[in-house]
Each structure stands twice: as C-alpha cells, then as structure tokens.
Computed example of a mutant assay.
Amino acid sequence: MIDEFDLFMISKHLFKALNQDINIEIVIISNTPKKSMKLVNLCKRLIDLEASIYWAMDDSLFTNEDYFAIFDKEYLICGSKQSIYENPETLLRSKNDFFNGLAQSSQRINLLSGNIEIEFNVDKSIVFAQEYITLKWETKNTHEIIIYPHGWEVEAQGFKTIKINEDTKFTLEGKNKDKSLRKSVFVRVLKENEIDFNVDVYDSILKDFIAIEPTLTEQGLYAAFLNQRIKLTWNIPMIGKLSESKLGKLTLKGSHEFILNQNETFLFTFKSINKTQTKKISFKCFYDESFFEEDLEEGLKTEKLAQKQALNRQKWASYLIRIGVKLFNIFKKKK
C-alpha cells in the first residue's frame, strides 16, 4: 500500500523485480479520482510487466500515511510506528488481510487507450475587454485534460466562465496511454477607443475644405467666422449606436455640414455594450472685426486670445495654400 509520490520513488526497484518474474500487487492510496499523465505512463509500464495495480480513494488513509509492503507473505515493512503485538505474526497477518480487503474493494486500474473524442467550444468568439466568456468541453477516453494557455487541469467534462481582456487562443489537450488530441477556440477582444471627429471649414478661394484645430483653452471648442460653411466627419470602427442631441440617430461613418450663423454646440453620444461615451463640439461665431475689439470682462481675455489664435491659424493655413496655388499656376504658364 503506497501513495503516488512514493510509487515514483521506488519505481526503479519495482521494474527490476518484475523483470525477474516476481509477482507484485500495488494499492495506490489517493484523495482524488484524478490521475496525472505521469502516473498513467508509469502504471502502463508496470502493468505491461504484469503488475496488478489498484486505486483506492480514502481520505483517512491518505492523511495518516500508514503505508506498508509485504514480501513473500513473510516480511513486513511499515512506513510508520505500529501498535505493540505480542506475536509479530499477528501483525503480519493483520496487514495482509487488510491489504487483500482493500484490493478487493478498490478499483483496478485499466488504462484507457485508442481514439480520443473532444468537444470544445466557447459561447462568444468576439467580445469587448472585461467581458465574460464561457468555455465548455466534453471528452471521452482520456486520462488527462489540460486547457492552455493557463494550464488548467480539468475533469472529463465541464465548463469555466472567465473574464477576458485580450485576444486569446484556448487549446484543450486530452491524453490517454497511447494518444493525445488537441482542439482550439479563438476569442477576439475588440478594443474600445475614444470616439473622434474631424472639423473642417470651407475656403471660398480654394473652393475646398481645410482642417481646423480646437482652441487652446478648452477641448472641443472651435472658432469660426459668421456664415462660414463647416463640416463634421467621423468614422467609428466599433460596435454600437451613435446619436446627437439635435441630429438624432447617426450612422457610425458619416458627416454633417452646416452654415455657422450663431454660436453652436453639438453633443454626440456613442453607446456600446460596455460603456457610453459623449463628445461635445462647440463653435464660437466671430465677425472679422471682432479680433480688434477690447473685451474688458474679467476672465475672458485668455479665451479671446486663444480663439483669435485659432482663427489666425485657420487664416494662415488658407493663406499659405493660396500662395502655393498661385506659384503652381505661374510655373505652369512659364512651361
């Protein structure tokens, strides 16, 4: 009678004895029905040499570790101190009877072999970060089942629910004494980026739109001239629904053009499975001469300067592009 660890410790001596045609019976004590693939391979070699091996699940025996061996029905070796017997023969016969009874009540190890069957699937193959998925499996004719990349040792059938944050390939490997088989599933995790919008204004000289940037003082605040044509464009590569407080429901890829005749504000909302994002875009409407008006109200000077700088960048960009067009036309005429 022995446990799995001690069996490995004396395995070399067992092989030598079996090769000399010595009959060996082994009862392995455990507190679980699971057998490691390393143990399965060792038992296969011992059984091939005609050893008889039994598997006994007993928490008390496993905890007490009162292991022993009997040789030729005459010699007894115990791993722990025994009670005092007047006659040593009585102890030997007691242990022998106990072993025989334990062997009869235990399960004889018959190692599985042949083809392995595996069903392995996941309930969702495309998810967002922090979302839960459930892996489910069922195997037949296997001694050992491991799910990678986490190295989970699992039962022949079952399920596992986990939270996932990145693209992951899950592989279930089943083994018996002769064969191994793998089945894999892949789960893609969509990354949720912040929604973004492009803002362009129309240049009547170039007859085209040019991009503008927000003011330095407030994210999402833009400066533009009265009656200037403005275009908002967006392309959201995520799964969800987009809407705007005044425009209503919108497609995930699109644009909106309007003429600025007053201060204007847009409030966009994007709803996905995991969260809701909002984006505020505001426009400050200016006449040309407003640059030169002195704003004496406390707290507005910095904003006025920032809005002026934004408009100046817009005018300079337009001016440089016009120069480029003129030079191109001059060189074209010379040719």
Rank of each mutant, 00 (worst) to 15 (best):
E74Y: 13
E74I: 10
Y75L: 15
L76T: 09
I77G: 06
C78G: 04
C78D: 02
C78A: 12
S80F: 06
S80G: 04
I84G: 02
E86A: 09
N87D: 14
L91Q: 08
L92H: 05
R93V: 10
D97M: 13
D97H: 12
F98E: 15
L102E: 02
L102P: 02
A103L: 08
S106G: 02
Q107G: 08
Q107P: 03
R108G: 03
R108M: 09
I109K: 02
I109N: 02
I109A: 01
N110H: 09
L111H: 02
L112N: 03
L112K: 12
S113C: 05
S113A: 10
G114D: 03
N115Y: 08
N115G: 06
I116Y: 04
I116S: 02
I118D: 05
N121R: 09
D123K: 04
S125Q: 14
S125V: 10
S125L: 09
V127M: 07
V127W: 04
V127P: 01
F128W: 13
Q130I: 09
Y132A: 13
I133L: 07
T134Q: 08
W137C: 04
I145Y: 06
I145M: 12
I145D: 08
H150A: 12
H150E: 14
H150N: 14
G151T: 04
E153I: 15
E153S: 15
V154I: 14
E155W: 10
A156V: 14
G158C: 06
G158S: 04
G158L: 06
T161Y: 08
T161E: 12
K163D: 10
N165C: 06
D167F: 03
T168G: 01
F170Q: 00
T171F: 00
T171L: 00
L172Y: 01
G174V: 06
K175S: 05
N176S: 01
K177Q: 05
D178V: 00
K179T: 04
K179P: 00
K179M: 09
S180L: 06
L181I: 03
K183H: 01
K183R: 03
V185Q: 03
F186V: 11
V187Y: 00
V187W: 00
L190P: 00
L190A: 07
L190D: 12
K191L: 11
E192R: 05
N193F: 15
N193I: 14
E194H: 15
E194N: 15
F197A: 12
D200Q: 14
Y202R: 04
S204E: 15
I205N: 12
L206W: 03
L206I: 04
K207A: 08
K207Y: 05
D208Q: 07
F209L: 03
F209D: 03
F209H: 07
I210F: 09
